[in-house]
Design a protein around this nucleic acid. Structure first.
Length: 267
DNA sequence: ATGGCATGACAATCATGA
C-alpha cells in the first residue's frame, strides 16, 4: 500500500467539512495538512474527523489562519514531537504545526500572504520564511525524512503562473519571494510536483472572481517539499482539481504526494 | 485606477485573502 501525504488550504474548515469528509472517503490519504482552518481549538471538529478515522492535531485562532495535521488512524501510529508555532519566532498568528510519525517529520505551514510588495505584511512574510528556513536547517539534520507541506503563497517559477507578464514582480511572484523559496530548496528539499512530468498550466489556486477557474487563470502556490531521502520514495504528485469544481469550493485545490511503501528503519 | 468573490465578525460594512 502506498503512503499518501496531502496539503489543502480549506479556506474555513467549518464551511469545507462536507468536502473534506467526502474527499477523505474517496481518497483516504494517510497524512493531511490543512491551512486556513479559521477555527479556535475549542471548536475544532475533532469528533467528526475521528468518526471517519482521522486523528487531528491543530493550532488555530479566531477568524484568521489556523493549521492542522490529520493522521489516518488505520495507517499511522502515534505521533511525537508536536510543535505548534515556529520555534524561536514569536508570532500571534497560527501558521505552523509539525509532528513526527512513522519516522517522518511532517511540517505544515501557512505562509503569510504578504498583501503587496514593500508593504509591512511583505516584510513579515519574508521574516517569517527566514525564521522557518533557519529552523528547518536544524530539522533536516535531525530528521532525514522530512516533508514541508502547505500554502507557501509563492509561485516559484513563471510556469506556475497563468500570466507571467501580468504577475511579474507582483506579490506571490516577486524576486525576493522566489529567492526565499529557493533558499528552502537549498536546505536539500525538492519540489515533489516537479519530480514528474506535469501538464502545462497546472495550478493549485484560482481567484473566486472573474470565473478564474474555468478560464484556467491560476497560480501554483501550494507545495510539498521533500528531503532527498523522501524524494527517492516519491512515485507521484498531483493536484486534486476536482475539488475546485464543487459547489462552494475552497479557492485552493489539494496537492497529494504518493510515497512507496514505508519500511520502518531498524532500531 | 478599481473591484470583482468568499469568509468571519458583526449586525452595515469591514479586514483579509492571493
Amino acid at each position: 500500500m502506498p503512503f499518501c501525504l496531502a496539503t489543502w488550504n480549506v479556506n474555513s474548515l467549518k464551511v469545507r467539512m462536507p468536502h473534506l469528509l467526502a474527499w477523505l472517503n474517496t481518497r483516504p490519504v494517510d497524512i493531511v495538512c490543512l491551512q486556513e482552518t479559521k477555527v479556535t481549538d475549542d471548536s475544532f471538529p475533532v469528533q467528526s474527523l475521528a468518526d471517519v478515522g482521522y486523528r487531528a492535531h491543530f493550532a488555530g485562532q479566531k477568524t484568521y489562519n489556523g493549521v492542522a495535521i490529520l493522521l489516518r488512524e488505520a495507517s499511522v501510529g502515534t505521533s511525537t514531537e508536536l510543535v505548534c508555532g515556529l520555534p524561536g519566532y514569536d508570532d500571534p498568528q497560527a501558521r505552523l504545526i509539525a509532528l513526527t510519525v512513522e519516522g517522518l517529520r511532517v511540517v505544515c505551514g501557512y505562509f503569510p500572504n504578504g498583501q503587496a510588495v514593500a508593504s509591512e505584511k511583505y516584510a513579515y512574510k519574508l521574516a517569517w520564511i527566514g525564521a522557518l528556513t533557519n529552523w528547518l536547517r536544524e530539522q533536516v539534520q535531525v530528521h532525514p525524512q522530512l516533508a514541508l507541506l502547505g500554502d507557501f503563497n509563492i509561485a516559484p517559477e513563471d510556469r506556475d503562473v497563468h500570466d507571467p507578464a501580468q504577475w511579474a514582480g507582483q506579490i506571490l511572484c516577486s524576486d525576493q519571494e522566489r529567492a526565499a523559496f529557493r533558499a528552502l530548496l537549498a536546505l536539500g528539499l525538492v519540489d515533489a510536483f516537479r519530480l514528474f512530468e506535469q501538464a502545462e498550466r497546472s495550478f493549485t489556486w484560482w481567484d473566486y472572481r472573474e470565473f478564474a477557474f474555468r478560464r484556467k487563470m491560476g497560480l501554483r502556490i501550494d507545495h510539498i517539499l521533500l528531503t532527498s531521502a523522501l524524494a527517492k520514495r516519491c512515485t507521484a504528485c498531483s493536484i486534486e482539481v476536482e475539488l475546485r469544481k464543487l459547489e462552494r469550493p475552497s479557492d485552493h485545490a489539494p496537492v497529494v504526494a504518493v510515497l512507496e511503501e514505508f519500511t520502518r528503519p531498524a532500531t
